[in-house]
Design a binder for these strands. Structure first.
Lengths: 248, 248
DNA sequence: CACTAAAGTTAGTGGCGACTAAACTTTGAT
DNA sequence: ATCAAAGTTTAGTCGCCACTAACTTTAGTG
């Protein structure tokens, strides 16, 4: 089928394979195991396609598959997934910081480039950026040797009225959401307080700087935060700005 | 990959298709028509594979194929080829100028990225570079609307002893050659004079600045130049430096 | 505890893009 | 003018990665 396949040492991962491993990694860290249907939804393919690919990947040693029970990455699979994720997040950072992309437009671009960029390119970009630890959406960037700081965060929706928190992360996959967050100035690093909370999944009123935007519960669930000790604060500007700001 | 193919407006070009069109374009501008075998060599595939692809591309309107006679691009095919070439050359320029790549290492990287980068990314890079008209190897960059300044140049090998010329272009495909040219400081924009020429395809002695490197005939053939009017010059430094230097 | 809905798998198919082997031009040299 | 070599095409196959349809397993409910 392929002329130079006589003695290929490692058949490099194809683009679809990288996508599967990445999607499985993400589902696994969120839910423990990755279900066939969830992978299918994440990749917009039919469940049967997932079963087929999973069989091949299991046989190649990238994951363990217990039929009807879900899949889990092996070490090799996890390494490959983290490599792709590192590429993706460095690309997003570079596109935002250097090339002036808005944070809601980098996902698709990075999604395609992550399969084409060489290690050298990624590392040159990382160097140009000063080796950032988070991408523009606050997601931690895996290191070259495959370690990530995946701290579980709370969602904005879980906070109680009066609590203060720092926004730390949001998914990069929903442009509308990202545009709205940019509008209300809610970015990684931003300090936010819960002013009010309507009962039964009603909207939340936030304080961000001097503004008090209202957000729906669905949005609040998507936004990851890190609660802050309720520091005493004088009315007025939040003077104690964190320097952990990672956004551009 | 069939599900979202119901009513696709433009069946975007696949990566192999872009490669074929680009290769055919390059052969066509060099030799008038593109021969099956030459395309096969350029893409490192079997001749039979070329025939197969050519049939499909002809049927899709990207080229005209006269069996046993070679292929020629249609307008649609030429447009697609030039779009890919523009991407390639802007990427090479960006990698060299902004990310510090050596000019002999950009070809492969650009070759992969040209299929993945969006129009937006390419135009952002072009803007960051100030819309260059040539890539690092002196190749003209097609405009967005598909015009190129493909002037035919002479090769260094054609010059007579005593002639002076400005180096304008060299292929990006041979890293060793490029490294050697960098070593003897022969880049697009560089002024060069033929000091001596051994007969029967022997080596040429050049003057580049204050140095007099010798180059083989094969190399000399690869280097495109633009003869300069033999200006009067006093012995010593070439003081009349051109300001048309396009290299970084 | 049986039954059914949801989730997952198997079976069979199709397009793309490569391959080899073999047949068929076209060309160029005797 | 013939014929061999070079170039090109046809025929048949294969792997990847999708798909649909039909079947199996699991889990949840009455």
């Amino acid at each position: 089928m392929m002329s130079p396949d006589h003695a290929v040492p490692r058949p490099l991962l194809t683009e679809p394979v990288e996508d599967y491993l990445k999607a499985i990694y993400e589902l696994e860290t969120r839910h423990g195991v990755a279900a066939t249907t969830d992978v299918a939804i994440a990749l917009a393919v039919a469940p049967a396609s997932v079963t087929g690919m999973v069989r091949r990947l299991a046989q190649q040693g990238y994951l363990d598959h217990v039929p009807y029970r879900g899949v889990q990455l092996t070490d090799a699979g996890r390494r490959a997934a983290l490599r792709t994720i590192r590429r993706h997040r460095i690309l997003e950072s570079y596109l935002t910081s250097v090339l002036g992309y808005a944070w809601d437009r980098v996902h698709d671009e990075a999604e395609r480039l992550e399969h084409a960029a060489s290690d050298e390119l990624i590392e040159r970009m990382a160097t140009a950026l000063g080796h950032p630890s988070q991408d523009p959406h606050g997601a931690p960037i895996p290191t070259v040797d495959g370690t990530v700081d995946e701290r579980p965060h709370r969602s904005l929706a879980e906070l109680a009225v009066g609590e203060r928190a720092r926004m730390v992360q949001v998914s990069d996959k929903n442009p509308q959401l990202l545009r709205y967050l940019a509008e209300i100035a809610l970015q990684p690093g931003t300090e936010v307080m819960i002013v009010a909370k309507a009962p039964f999944g009603g909207p939340l009123t936030l304080r961000i700087g001097a503004n008090e935007p209202m957000v729906g519960p669905h949005l609040a669930e998507q936004v990851r935060v890190e609660p802050m000790p309720s520091a005493p604060r004088s009315l007025g500007h939040p003077i104690t700005r964190s320097r952990k700001s990672s956004s551009r």
